[in-house]
Design a binder for these strands. Structure first.
Lengths: 353, 353
DNA sequence: AGTACATCTTGAAGCGGTTCAATCAAGAAT
DNA sequence: ATTCTTGATTGAACCGCTTCAAGATGTACT
């Protein structure tokens, strides 16, 4: 027994109407005489017709009414990161509102990424988390669909959403300087996509291939050097931004035991430092100040509440999705702002200067 | 200047070959003479052809090679729930491995859900988090695509994955009874989809429309009544399972101040109870025992580590995705197992019996 | 009765590809 | 020199649906 897939044409025939009318019966029921419509519906029912197949509609309509989010981590990691979650909330909000679909396109290995991007049935892409020279941008561009890059400026033919990373980082460092800190350590996001972690030397620092990391580092460096502290004298430790942030926290506290302030390049890292500090019996902010970056929801909820650089994460998602669905490709720049909470305070008297 | 969309036919014409050959040049490069292939590629390049459009391919191929996950919360909430994240990791792992796409279908309001399900371009659906009589199952069924329901048995024409909820709940209660507890309170997931929270009376308890909730409650009740404790004598408090779990935790501790053990119907709820207990200065497990349900990653990481009912969340995702992609529609039942950790202990001497 | 106007319905042309049977050219075998 | 193979290319038929110009049917008005 074969599976006899029922098509619109079959229904039309069974109902004794033309295919055009049958189509209308489903899509614009109001313009077809009730009597005929009933016949069509009856035929559909008795044949077990599943309704117009989107595949056919799609081809005809041109528009898919769906967007793809390309994530370069595996999806598991992607959703463990609160930043991504928040971002996706923004994207999802727009999709919901517009009734648009949402496809996730994982790209952990380059080959599958290519295939996925080439064959995704979407109206456009949002590219998240990209290294500087990533081929994903090339692939997306080749597809000739609108795409927007987040935290990266891929050129004038695409949309992009960036925030003032440098200014935010600067503000974070200035805040700590203003409190009187002079002994810093930096816990940085990956500089290079080779999985290495730990202390960073100058050559590696200069080789950063991630836009976000580079800018934030530059912001820290500017503020510190304006206060007479050379970035080369500051211990910098590189860490992954998932569960393994714990390890990064341990390493940075080991590498700079005398630091009174930690500049963490993400809230995930900062929260890990907070946890590690507790483990070591160093009180925050009395013994140690910590400032994060991003202002994910968890930052305000932690104890102590995390001082961090706020950026409009969900807003970014909303804007990105909006751009794709509207077909626009502008370049949007957003501000960051320091959110001072309870994880920062002046350094202990004895350690000042 | 119109946008002259380049089609395969245009490329073929420009290259002076048939459309069939042009198609092969892209999809089966090996069977076309290198010389011709080069011509096609050159033509494509100069015309700015984006490569075969998946929309066309789709129609021809029949298979979409993508699956849809229908979530009934808004996506924002969906991904805030660690259970869903874990589940999606399983789904994503399979999609990655098979090179299949993954579409998210939000269904927060019934009308948009209908439209989304009817017009999603996928090979099948995974239905998550469904109330008993939900129309989503009907919609999915109507679409005549394979679908699998998670934590629900929708009938023999569809796949389903269920776990031994009742047995797990029973084990949780028995564990506490075995430790000597006699004064319980239950913090339950929603019983009815009306947003109400707080103390639950008997009639509401019997009206549960959620399969999972019903089963777990039944498991608790069985174990307790076997020990001579009537379920009607146990305070039951209903709570939402997102951020508002905090409120539920407060309510249950208020409603049953003398309870020595809390049966929480999810880890999210249990973790909220842990946090609230800290706030009230009640030590866990010395003063209060708490057992959760699900065993999300956070459960093992909390302090104290949460005693909970383990269920193979990621595995469920993997199986669900596998079933869709392979077109199977079996019924899979999985086991639960109690994971005893540090949030449970015998009740304080003074309060025993 | 004749004309004008609505209201439906029909038939056919795509939408952008893939595939398959048939054709063709060229070298191998007889 | 003729027949067989083999391998590459072509042409046309779909895939399932929407849309649109043109035709048909019926109603209202003069």
């Amino acid at each position: 027994m074969m599976k006899p897939v029922v098509r619109l044409a079959d229904v039309a025939r069974a109902a004794g109407v033309s295919q055009g009318t049958a189509s209308n019966a489903f899509n614009r029921p109001d313009i077809v005489r009730p009597e005929l419509r009933a016949k069509v519906e009856a035929a559909a029912l008795s044949l077990g017709y599943a309704g117009p197949d989107p595949k056919g509609r799609l081809l005809r309509a041109g528009k898919v009414h769906a967007l793809g989010v390309v994530v370069n981590n595996s999806l598991g990691y992607f959703f463990n990161d609160p930043f991504n979650r928040e971002f996706m909330r923004g994207v999802a909000a727009v999709c919901d509102a517009e009734g648009a679909g949402l496809s996730l396109i994982a790209s952990h290995d380059q080959k599958s990424a290519a295939w996925s991007i080439e064959s995704a049935v979407v109206d456009g892409f949002i590219l998240q988390c990209l290294e500087g020279g990533n081929r994903l941008v090339e692939l997306a561009r080749k597809r000739r669909l609108p795409f927007v890059a987040v935290d990266l400026y891929p050129g004038t033919d695409a949309g992009s959403i960036i925030v003032d990373e440098r200014g935010g980082a600067q503000a974070a460092a200035e805040h700590l300087l203003g409190l009187g800190h002079r002994r810093f350590a930096i816990l940085t996001l990956p500089l290079i996509d080779d999985g290495r972690t730990g202390p960073v030397d100058r050559s590696r620092r200069d080789a950063t291939q991630y836009n976000t990391t580079r800018e934030r580092l530059a912001g820290y460096a500017e503020a510190l050097s304006a206060a007479g502290i050379a970035i080369d004298s500051v211990p910098i430790v590189e860490s992954l931004n998932d569960r393994r942030a714990e390890e990064g926290a341990r390493m940075v506290l080991d590498a700079a035991p005398e630091a009174t302030a930690i500049l963490a390049m993400s809230d995930v890292l900062a929260l890990a430092v907070l946890a590690e500090a507790v483990r070591r019996g160093r009180r925050v902010p009395q013994h140690l100040s910590v400032v994060g970056f991003d202002d994910v929801p968890e930052a305000a909820a932690s104890r102590p509440a995390l001082t961090t650089v706020h950026q409009p994460i969900m807003e970014k998602g909303r804007i990105a999705a909006g751009m794709i669905l509207s077909g626009a490709t502008e370049r949007v720049a957003l501000r960051t702002a320091l959110a001072v909470r309870d994880s920062t305070a002046p350094p202990p008297e004895t350690l000042r200067r």
